[in-house]
Design a protein around this nucleic acid. Structure first.
Ligand SMILES: Nc1ncnc2c1ncn2[C@@H]1O[C@H](COP(=O)(O)OP(=O)(O)OP(=O)(O)O)[C@@H](O)[C@H]1O
Length: 731
DNA sequence: TGGTGCTCAATTTTT
DNA sequence: TTGAGCACCA
């Protein structure tokens, strides 16, 4: 069996792959082949006769898991299908379903997503009469998640709480856990935490799994949190065969509890562990790598590492400062077009950004230019209303105690059930527990009005009918549901286009159900998949389109051409990181991740002005751009052709005569209405008393009121025309 | 009960 | 600017 036949390896890589066993940490920079080594290691183990079901590998995304499995399958054949390869969450679900009894949870437990969590906590905050302004759901959920990721129980949180605020958060946490339990549900973080608790608390189960798995492997180890560390530690303690790969410079999920100590203190946690470093990058051209190395070197808290490439030098990284986000989108589209004319394909390109909201401007422009694109992230498929509605019915079939699912659809489509009946059901739930049973009792009794009774009857009938077919393939279940619930009727209210969209989504959901069935899965597998699958996991190969995604979502991917957009102070790095050096370093690592996705070509863009939901804002060019040595940058100035036009030396000529308004140098001008990137002034060199020489990137208005967006060196400011002189004649 | 329209918050990142 | 929650009225 020749692993090397499918995956060639350098010496260091081979040493890792052929490691004798025990604990091994492979730390290495971007593109050094860590993922490849992990896959080769698994293939090697199988070739050496290790049973596939005794190999447990954790990946960061479901997609990575699928690719890993496929890769290994290519080298060792279909035994690869029996491997345990998956994300921490998917693997935890798999084990918890089997060990539900020991874990003290229902085997068909529901998995609560963000929306479900918010629903529970909204009720709790209301019930405790906490001030909503101070107890926003987002931070509250984040705090609870932090506790869970650190394996802190509600009791421990309450004991550790000092301030009244912390005490109340702990109380919310306690009630929230109780609610989850009553609903027979776990949230994402519980999946890991409950599994760890089970392994720590039940020696029998712990022993069984320690014996079942002989090798544990972890990809993207730098982004594991404490609970995940404990899980890995528990599962590998007996045999000690732990193989992890990671890069401390690519840790970008600190806000989710990722703990770099897992990497930095690996040798302490696993005495006798070996560390192997990989130093050759196979992905990027030398200039790209040099730029990435230069930027990341600005981080203080890191172990310096070597990373070199044998590849050609490659072209310099291009930088474009656009006037605003619309202009930026245009420049990016133009870049993609130009690349296509050179023979490049769209699917070799990705546009990376810091926040999902940035995709909108890009989307509009790409659509206008008929450039095929695909957005990854944002509102994902399984979060769409119609999809969640239908899934809620299936969730109720699996687990009648699932209150979030129940309240979501008990009156969808409309059945005349509202707050009045809800009160009755809730009262009744004290006795019957499950909302479905409470409703059933009410329907049987005489308390409901005629309308409500009919509605309740219709709803229960659908659930009962589905319940009788719970073992049918998920797609059949969905079809049955659509037929009985007349769900399509609720769709007809909206516009035709949105309607078609919804129908298409429903079709796709049915197809997803059929796929699960084809793979031998049933209702529970389908529901788990719908909870754990993200947009990035659903990416299909083959279509020639440019990918639009956040830098976070791009982790682990690689593209011949990468565009990084929105490189402005406040956006990337995000303003929320300004006061905290540690968070700023994480922003920098994020930029490093983004940059190192590129193999051949990089375009960096920023917008001098960016419209936000609450107005517009100008930002300086990102410090990260400035941390790239200028010799590596091809910083193109805007539309220089326009500078050729003759123009008066003074801008907005009559401004001085129109005295009155106080002299404001207006770096923070009032929200501009429309900065026109095609204004005839754009591209002109100008001179400002205090800011010096600059280039106009946008302008709006005429005469004395004219305002110009000007780039002075690295910073971009908005200034009134009357403070500017043409740059050509000195001042 | 259900529909309309108002107000307010949200945009940092996600398994 | 959009979406969601909520108050108010038919
Ligand atoms: N020994 C090798 N010979 C040729 N190509 C290699 C070798 N090792 C890795 N590569 C290639 O280098 C690229 C990066 O590999 P891989 O994705 O495994 O790196 P990584 O360290 O996991 O990257 P990152 O951490 O940046 O996500 C891939 O295209 C891979 O095929």
């Amino acid at each position: 069996m020749r692993v090397e036949a499918t995956l060639s390896l350098n010496d260091a890589q081979r040493r890792a792959v052929e490691h004798r066993g025990g604990a091994l940490l492979v730390v290495a920079g971007a593109g050094s082949g860590k993922t490849r080594v992990l896959a080769a290691r698994v293939a090697r183990l199988l070739a050496d006769g290790v049973r596939p079901e005794a190999v447990l590998a954790f990946t960061f995304t479901n997609r990575a898991a699928r690719e890993m499995r496929e890769r290994i399958e290519r080298s060792v054949g279909e035994a690869a299908r029996r491997l345990w390869v998956g994300t921490f969450h998917a693997t935890a679900v798999r084990i918890l379903r089997r060990e539900a009894a020991a874990a003290g949870i229902p085997p068909a437990f529901a998995i609560y997503d963000r929306e479900d969590q918010e629903g529970l906590l909204r009720e709790i905050v209301k019930r405790l009469e906490l001030p909503e302004a101070a107890f926003r759901l987002g931070p509250l959920i984040a705090r609870i998640a932090d506790s869970k990721n650190a394996l802190v129980t509600p009791d421990q949180a309450a004991r550790a709480a000092v301030s009244p605020y912390e005490k109340q958060v702990a109380e919310c946490y306690r009630l929230y856990q109780r609610q989850l339990r009553e609903n027979g549900a776990l949230d994402f973080d519980d999946l890991i935490a409950e599994l760890v608790r089970l392994l720590l608390g039940d020696p029998g189960v712990a022993k069984r799994y320690a014996a079942r798995f002989e090798h544990v492997l972890v990809d993207e180890y730098q982004d594991t949190n404490h609970a995940q560390f404990r899980l890995v530690e528990r599962l590998s303690r007996v045999h000690g065969n732990l193989f992890v790969v990671g890069d401390d410079d690519q840790s970008i999920y600190g806000w989710r509890g990722a703990d770099l100590a897992n990497v930095l203190e690996f040798e302490t946690a696993f005495p006798g562990a070996e560390v192997i470093r990989l130093e050759q990058n196979y992905r990027s051209t030398r200039l790209i790598l040099e730029a990435a190395n230069a930027v990341i070197a600005h981080n203080r808290g890191r172990r310096a590492k070597t990373l070199w490439s044998e590849r050609e030098e490659g072209p310099r990284l291009r930088f474009v400062l656009a006037a605003d986000e619309v202009d930026e989108a245009r420049r990016i589209t133009a870049f993609l077009d130009e690349r296509r004319r050179r023979g490049g394909r769209l699917d070799e390109c990705a546009v990376l950004y810091r926040t999902n909201a940035q995709s909108r401007a890009l989307e509009i422009e790409l659509r206008a230019r008929s450039t095929p694109y695909e957005i990854v992230g944002g509102v994902s498929f399984y979060q769409r209303r119609e999809v969640k509605d239908l899934l809620a019915y299936l969730r109720l079939v699996a687990n009648p105690r699932d209150g979030a699912a129940f309240w979501r659809v008990w009156n969808t489509p409309r059945r005349g059930l509202g707050p009045a009946v809800r009160g009755l059901v809730e009262a009744r739930m004290e006795r019957d527990g499950a909302p479905v049973e409470a409703l059933r009792a009410l329907e049987a009794g005489g308390t409901l009005t005629r309308v409500a009774r009919a509605g309740a009857g219709a709803f229960l009938e659908i659930l009962d009918d589905l319940g009788r077919h719970r073992d049918a393939p998920p797609d059949r279940l969905l079809l049955r549901l659509l037929e009985r619930s007349e769900y399509f009727k609720t769709l007809e209210s909206d516009g035709a286009a949105a309607d078609d969209d919804r129908r298409a989504n429903i079709e796709e959901l049915i197809a997803a159900g059929a796929r699960v069935a084809a793979a031998g899965g049933g209702l529970l597998e389908f529901l788990a998949e719908s909870s754990l699958t993200t947009d990035a996991d659903r990416l299909a190969e083959g279509a020639d389109r440019v990918l639009l995604l956040t830098a976070h979502n791009a982790k682990g991917l690689e593209f011949p051409a990468v565009v990084i957009a929105g490189l402005e102070e406040g956006l990337f790095p995000h303003a929320n990181a300004f006061e905290d050096p540690a968070r700023m370093e994480e922003e920098r690592r994020l930029f490093y991740v983004a940059l190192t996705r590129a193999a051949d070509e990089v375009l960096l863009t920023a917008a001098a002005y960016r419209r936000r939901f609450d107005g517009a804002r100008g930002g300086r060019v990102s410090r990260f751009v400035e941390e790239i040595p200028s010799t590596l940058l091809d910083a193109e100035e805007l539309v220089t052709a326009r500078a050729a036009e003759g123009e008066a030396a003074h801008w907005g000529g009559d401004g001085l005569r129109r005295a009155g308004s106080g002299a404001r140098s207006a770096s923070r001008a009032p929200a501009p209405t429309r900065a026109d990137p095609h204004h005839r002034a754009v591209g002109r060199e100008v001179f400002h008393e205090s800011f010096g020489r600059g280039v106009v990137v946008a302008a709006e208005g005429e005469g004395g009121a004219a305002k110009f967006t000007v780039r002075f060196g690295g910073s971009v400011r908005k200034v009134l025309g009357r403070f500017l002189t043409g740059g050509d004649d000195g001042h």
